[in-house]
Amino acid sequence: MSILREKGMGIINIIVILLMLSVLSFVFKDNHFFKFTERLLVGVSAGYGFLIIFNAGFIKKIWIPLFYSTGTNNFFQVMNIILPCLLGLLFFTSFSKKYGFLAKYPLAFLLGTGAGVEIGPRIETSIMRQINSSVVDFSNLSLFEIFNYIIILIAIVTTMYYFLFIVRGNKKRENFIANIGIFFMMIGFGASFGYTIMGRLSLLIEVVDMFRERIFSIFGLL
């Protein structure tokens, strides 16, 4: 059994290595091996995702409660499952010219409830608390922290100035303030770009490391 398992792992390792090489071959030129692997990845990911969502969403939340659960015998509990399903099914009417307008109802429901639920907490999280954290009491802070907060204040004011007032002015003073805003934005973009390079390199490192591990395990070096 263990020999079979080892052989199986060996075959899987070889398949993984071939697929990795097919993807990396794109570095030189687009080719059929790359296209095959790309489609395979998309197909497998979509299939796996569908299966998980179908099982967790349809089977566990609709099929089992409706047909196998003893707890769902109340009329309201049944309707609580059936009505959202019917609303969801209306999305499929968009394929019909005659009844396509019905798809707007679930869409409106989704957008309406989504906006209603989201706007309040989102404003609190991303605006109010951020404003609160920008307004600080200097009395308990060290000199370095005060200096830091002053820089943050300058960055906020000049960057907002750039977005809100730059269209109006040609005056030198206005451009000077906007330029400081641009300077701070460039620092932000630079940091994001640096992090992006780091992220992409991490992916490459993972691929190379996995490649190394698979080859070593084929030759029994791991």
Binding site: T125, G199, S202
Partner: peptide, 26 residues
């Protein structure tokens, strides 16, 4: 979070909404 997203979440760290942050492989 991934490295690409790390700079996006620093404001939430400064405001105390996030207590700690790991950014990317680093």
């Amino acid at each position: 979070v991934t490295a690409v997203m790390a700079s996006e979440y620093y404001p939430y760290l400064n405001s105390g909404q996030l207590l700690g942050l790991l950014g990317g492989l680093r």
